[in-house]
Design a binder for these strands. Structure first.
Lengths: 209, 209
DNA sequence: AACGAGGGTGAGCAAGCGCTTAGAGACCGG
DNA sequence: CCGGTCTCTAAGCGCTTGCTCACCCTCGTT
């Protein structure tokens, strides 16, 4: 969709759609600060300082501190939903698509765990209208995963007594990766993704290949 | 262990060990406020107001706002660890004990989800020494669950390629209940506990009875 | 009746907060 | 060479924060 998100080389560049550059620097600084200390414990002076600017510079690019959080949250949720929908729309059996969805969703939560932490755990700091907008995106993520599971059940691939409950559990499991994942830890994002894909296939009762 | 935790009637009374009564009222008010708005967004005036007291009264019973959070976190983690150890020490097969652990651990996170939210998600707001103390308790919770899984593998009941990874996933799944659980939602704590116990047994490859 | 101890309050301090404003410098079309 | 636009800063305003302090009230004991 977005042109700015990819460099000519092809590798994806996070926050590439945020312009001008000073606005992006402020946003990246805010992501780090929010992830480390939480939204409410982060000061506008801290964000500006990390971006190498004065506190007032923030207000040229963003109306309020809350708008900064909203931009982060919106972009992050868009990306998460895109990942899930891409996996759901792929070809292959329901088991393959579910494994693919979990693997890439978990990898994103591990690789970009600072961003994910803000996106997943600072929802309550948004104002009412902004929160409503984000909640709708989350509903759609839930629907994407539920769709794959539904199809797996219909095709006789899965054995799932409680589809909505299992959907919540699968998403919950993936999301919580951003809370405990540590870059210094033993596992790479790829390894966690593979482990979790296997665990989720067991949860839905997919027969092993 | 604690005498004050049980009334003569026998039903357990949360925060019964906190005395005097004014200190308990303040602590309960703090749990509610922290769970609703987060530690940093909660003011000492708000806590005191909910407890029907003046802001200064808080400092008769607690040295700082952080000490209040530490007391909550400590008592909550003690309770969580007690639940897991009780299940691990029970009799029955490893599958039965694992299901029991997940069922009661999840039930606690759903029933007392305000407390659990503070306990599980406000860890970073603690000072360094207090956090270290709590992190040790979490390590012991991890060990309790890993112990059950280890025994299940040794007895040939479970099929688990990655025991540490699966342990993290199981605990993560349970803990995250406190984030999404809603009292107005469709499911009771008992139902979520039963669902999750079943899902976890599938994750460890326990054969169904 | 006098007393000390301890739980409680009203007022307020120093510091830090989100955010605004006046103006400086850089850039650019004419 | 000018005037307008855009980005950024120094200073600071009004307010809230965590916490303190001087004082009061209610006790059980002597």
């Amino acid at each position: 969709m977005s042109v700015a998100e990819e460099t000519p080389g092809g590798e994806d560049m996070p926050w590439g759609e945020v312009t001008p550059e000073a606005a992006r620097r402020l946003l990246v600084a805010a992501v780090e600060a929010f992830a480390e200390r939480g939204y409410h414990a982060t000061t506008t002076r801290d964000i500006a300082g990390r971006a190498g600017m004065s506190p007032a510079a923030l207000y040229i690019h963003y109306k309020t501190k809350e708008e900064l959080l909203h931009r982060i949250s919106r972009i992050g949720h868009d990306k998460a939903l895109e990942i899930l929908r891409a996996a759901a729309a792929g070809d292959g059996t329901a088991a393959e698509r579910l494994a693919d969805a979990v693997r890439s969703f978990v990898r994103w939560h591990a690789e970009r765990h600072t961003t994910a932490r803000v996106v997943q755990y600072e929802l309550d700091a948004l104002g009412p209208e902004h929160r409503a907008e984000i909640v709708e995106l989350r509903r759609e993520s839930d629907a994407a995963v539920r769709g794959i599971i539904d199809e797996g059940v219909a095709a006789g691939e899965f054995d799932v007594p409680d589809v909505p409950g299992t959907t919540v559990a699968v998403l919950s499991l993936c999301i919580d990766v951003s809370r405990w994942f540590n870059v210094q830890g033993r596992r790479t994002p790829d390894e966690v993704g593979a482990l979790y894909a296997d665990l989720v296939l067991r949860m839905v009762g997919a027969q092993k290949k």
